[in-house]
Nucleic acid binder design. Structure first.
Lengths: 167, 167
DNA sequence: TTTTAGTTTCAAAAAGTTTTGAAAGTTTAA
DNA sequence: TTAAACTTTCAAAACTTTTTGAAACTAAAA
């Protein structure tokens, strides 16, 4: 296997992984392509490499910027926009965790808060409802705390803790 | 808000959450419905409550059994099958982590292993490729270790560690 | 054996998501 | 100005996933 084949393989697999995580294939592949590139790339290069349309490339690049995983750059004397990925994997993970927290954890916690204010009787159904929702809230709040903490913590603290934990 | 409304709200939101996680709405909703039920339920009850077809209910219930999140039960003198959910949230999370590990972590690690065996030159592209894939493998292997560890560890060990960590 | 009560399957339809490509918009240079 | 280089938008097309519903299947009861 040479570099081109290895790159291709990795980009494809990153696309598959993304799509099982609710991130569309093109977005995940652009992310992989830019992570692997030492130089920033133009929309045309992305289109050419991944065989996707201009609209698709543009939309997903903007989504990646929105997620804080890709940045724009201008080169002196050039009108084109250049794109490059966040390379520090710790930052990549922090960004993803922060975004997913905002999109997923916050809404479910809001619902849990709302339903916990409901007037619920002491029937078996009512008791079970209270128990299950309370348990879920307790676990989610722990994860939520962990993410908030990780977001604040420095570069490698979290990974060091993780390493110690599993050693 | 009464119990029925609260249940409805929670089931709907669990469906939304599931679908951003690559789990289809019906599957997530059936799971929520069964988690909230103190008694096991039949296919007809699930169909009625969630307003879905028999085929859909059957398919997704089997998928939930496959994921180890739902069990079947027979009641003496009855021909119908009854379904109930795993209620211990720790077990639920362990199961989900185990399944996702099998479906996602294992394949990407395999690809990372393959590409790390590729013959890659020392061009800037080659160097970047090696660096990025090595970094990713190192992080993924830590998570992988954590999941394996959690899978083996008892009931609340993990949550206790988590609690201590974020306190 | 035949009927009845249930479960499973799967092709087709519906719904949802992604992608395209061309037109509209924007910015810089001539 | 006007033209050229580039980016953005968005309706329609392509593709993917989910859902339906009826037929096939299975097992227990009559």
């Amino acid at each position: 296997m040479n570099l081109e084949e290895a790159k291709y393989k990795f980009i494809q697999e990153w696309g598959v992984l993304g799509s099982t995580w609710g991130i569309n294939r093109a977005m995940a592949q652009i992310h992989a392509y830019l992570m692997l590139s030492p130089e920033s790339k133009t929309t045309d290069e992305v289109m050419e490499e991944l065989k996707i349309s201009r609209g698709n490339a543009n939309m997903n690049m903007r989504a990646l910027i929105d997620w804080g995983l890709v940045y724009k750059e201008y080169k002196p004397g050039e009108r084109k926009e250049y794109f490059y990925a966040e390379k520090d994997l710790w930052n990549v993970m922090k960004q993803i965790a922060k975004e997913r927290r905002k999109r997923e954890i916050v809404p479910i916690r809001e619902v849990l808060k709302e339903v916990s204010a409901a007037e619920i009787d002491n029937s078996p159904e009512g008791k079970e409802f209270k128990k299950v929702t309370k348990d879920i809230d307790s676990i989610i709040s722990k994860f939520d705390g962990l993410i908030e903490m990780a977001a604040k913590s420095d570069q490698n603290w979290f990974l060091k803790v993780l390493t110690k934990l599993i050693k």
